[in-house]
Nucleic acid binder design. Structure first.
Lengths: 218, 218
DNA sequence: GCGTTTATCTATAGCTCAATAGGTAGAATT
DNA sequence: AATTCTACCTATTGAGCTATAGATAAACGC
């Protein structure tokens, strides 16, 4: 006696048009207070609606967290993969990877921050799924770094695993300070890329034996 | 009629001998679940005592957080300051700073993690106090980096502020993965220091024009 | 105009959690 | 031996929070 309802035409026209706005509010609040420190009331306050009304848009607070986390990294993997398997030297590709890692901060920093800081509080299943994703990203970075070593472009004694963890740590940390610092993502990317590739040390001029360019005074 | 009790001899012999153990349990639980995700019951469970008994050792959950955070960084500033104003090249000092930044992970990683991840949830006053401390540490790093640039040891075009944020981001991130990765702190320190100073790129041999040492096969 | 869908609302159940009050056994001190 | 202190305990209060149930007004489609 199970009645299977035919999909009516109207059921396909998307309801919940405000959903993106609701999730964005959730992202803002989760980013600011952390998942457990935030209340659904906080989210409702941002939107100017009642707390209970949120449940029209998401099934549970944890469900909201999952939606925010997914949007935080949507599309990123494909871009990174294309870079890793694309053309260029290892140094160029690594620079591009770092840059692509930071661009989402421009338009969805709250989502990214929630992903980075709160994904650990996702319920079992989705946490594991997202952990797998993260390891995939680490892998892409490591492949490029290893390629650099193999080609003789990077130092042979480099610990590729530690190098990748260092790079990701540095890049991910940016999510937590870049709002306060007044620097464009563009700038951060290029400085970080340069830092990773060249370090802070001044390089000896490779060939010229002439006099040094005098350091500017002050 | 206010009776001022004279300090008896006994009141000077420290009570609450188990306090360090209690705070350590709090650190463990806060590190694992985050401040708001952790309950005082969780802490009591670790210790095998009743939830209410904890309040013999700390005045409130937030008070416990403050104690944990303070222990996470106790003594660090003095060490870092000594390094910054001590002898050596900027590169050497920077390496030492990075190392000293990581050593607390060996014996109090939970405290450090709580400091890094949960200090934002401290109540107003102590949060500001600790924020000041953090800026002090950033300052020490930045002074050393600037010194390196001034001396011509580091690249002149280095953005010292971004470099410091990068270094601290990389080092602090280690707190969150070093338990799972099987690497000694010693190793991480030296790799990170090398990475910051030299980058990943292979340096041209400065002077020798002879044949290259052949790369090892495989 | 009339049924249906969308997007809210009110009210509240049910639970968890921090924190307080007051008690007590045993150790330490005098 | 009497007193005080330490390190817990039991019991409970009260607040805050997620989530559900059910109602409703406005918009929408025919």
């Amino acid at each position: 006696m199970t009645v299977v309802p035919l999909p009516s035409r109207r059921s396909r026209t998307s309801p919940r048009r405000r959903a993106p706005e609701i999730i964005e509010a959730a992202a803002r609040v989760f980013a600011q207070h952390g998942f457990h420190g935030a209340t659904t009331q906080d989210i409702a306050d941002v939107l100017g609606i009642r707390q209970a009304s949120l449940y029209y848009y998401f099934p549970s607070k944890e469900g909201a967290l999952e939606l925010v986390c997914l949007q935080g990294v949507a599309g990123y993997f494909e871009v990174a993969k294309a870079i890793a398997s694309g053309p260029g030297t290892a140094a160029e590709k690594l620079s591009r990877l770092i840059k692509s890692h930071l661009v989402p901060l421009t338009d969805r920093s709250d989502f990214v921050r929630v992903f980075l800081n709160e994904r650990q509080h996702l319920p079992g299943e989705s946490r594991r799924r997202i952990g797998k994703w993260s390891r995939g990203v680490e892998r892409l970075f490591e492949d490029v770094v290893k390629e650099g070593v193999r080609r003789g472009e990077f130092r042979a004694d480099l610990d590729t695993r530690l190098a990748v963890l260092a790079i990701l740590g540095m890049a991910n940390a940016a999510a937590n300070w870049y709002r306060h610092e007044e620097v464009a993502i563009e700038r951060i990317s290029s400085e970080f890329a340069r830092l990773v590739v060249d370090g802070v040390k001044k390089r000896r001029k490779p060939r010229s034996r002439g006099r040094r360019v005098p350091r500017p005074v002050r």
